[in-house]
Amino acid sequence: MIRAVCPGSFDPVTNGHLDVIERTAGLFDEIIVAVLVNEKKQSLFTVEERMEMLAEVTAHCPNVRVSSFKGLLVDFCQQNDVRAIVKGLRAVTDFDYELQMAQMNRRLSGVDTMFMSASPEYSFIASSLVKEVARGGGDVAHLLPGPVFRRLSERLGPRGGS
């Protein structure tokens, strides 16, 4: 079985994330969507909430499971027999950083990284931007899966918390 991981913060999961996960699910036997536990970062949703949302929006993909990790991604990969890391790229600026990470991960563990370009309709979406627009009262419904948008609206209020 060839297993890959799609890691991220997913705070919240966007349509761009879901697109990469679904496309990756078609390429590997099993995909682990791994939510990073970063206690130094102030998140809108808890790790458990993000995992619940991911499980809900990927329920139609039988070979996708959701987990979380703390520390180095390569350690998670080794513990879970993961052979590839799949990262979505929105722009060249993403590539600059992700290439360095991919080379370090390969050096540390032998785990390869595959880059998947974002679909054009999602290439501008970032969780941080979605939260900023939502907090300002902007409409982000078209950027998020339905269940995620509902939770975001509950968390920030009908006008994004303003």
Rank of each mutant, 00 (worst) to 15 (best):
M1H: 04
I2G: 05
R3L: 01
R3I: 08
R3G: 01
C6A: 09
P7M: 11
S9N: 13
N15F: 08
G16V: 06
H17E: 10
H17P: 01
L18F: 12
L18S: 13
L18E: 12
D19S: 14
V20K: 05
V20P: 06
I21S: 05
I21G: 09
E22H: 01
R23V: 00
G26A: 10
D29C: 08
I32R: 08
I32D: 10
I32F: 13
V33M: 02
V33C: 03
V33A: 04
V33H: 08
L36V: 03
L36Y: 05
V37P: 01
E39G: 07
E39A: 15
K40P: 00
Q42M: 12
S43N: 14
S43A: 14
S43Y: 06
S43L: 10
L44P: 12
V47E: 13
E48H: 10
E49Q: 11
E49G: 00
E49K: 07
R50W: 04
M51P: 05
M53D: 12
L54H: 10
A59P: 01
C61D: 09
P62F: 03
P62C: 09
N63V: 10
N63K: 05
S67R: 02
S68F: 11
K70Q: 15
K70V: 14
K70A: 15
G71Q: 12
L73K: 00
L73S: 00
V74Q: 00
D75H: 11
D75K: 13
D75G: 10
F76I: 07
C77I: 11
Q78F: 02
N80R: 12
D81M: 04
D81F: 03
V82Y: 07
V82C: 04
R83F: 00
A84W: 14
A84R: 15
A84V: 12
I85Y: 06
V86H: 02
K87W: 03
R90D: 01
A91N: 11
A91C: 14
V92Q: 09
V92C: 07
D94K: 01
F95A: 10
D96I: 03
L99A: 10
Q100P: 00
Q100A: 11
Q100E: 11
M101N: 07
M101T: 03
A102P: 08
Q103E: 09
M104T: 07
R106Y: 15
V111L: 02
V111K: 02
D112M: 05
T113Q: 04
F115C: 09
M116D: 04
S117H: 00
S119C: 03
Y122W: 15
S123L: 00
I125P: 07
A126F: 14
S127G: 15
S128H: 10
L129C: 04
V130N: 03
V130W: 08
K131A: 05
V133K: 09
V133G: 09
A134E: 12
G136V: 03
G136S: 13
G136I: 01
G138W: 07
D139F: 09
V140M: 08
H142A: 15
L143I: 06
L143H: 03
P145M: 11
G146N: 12
F149A: 15
R150Y: 11
R150P: 06
S153I: 07
E154K: 13
E154A: 15
E154H: 08
R155M: 12
G157E: 13
G161I: 04
S162L: 13
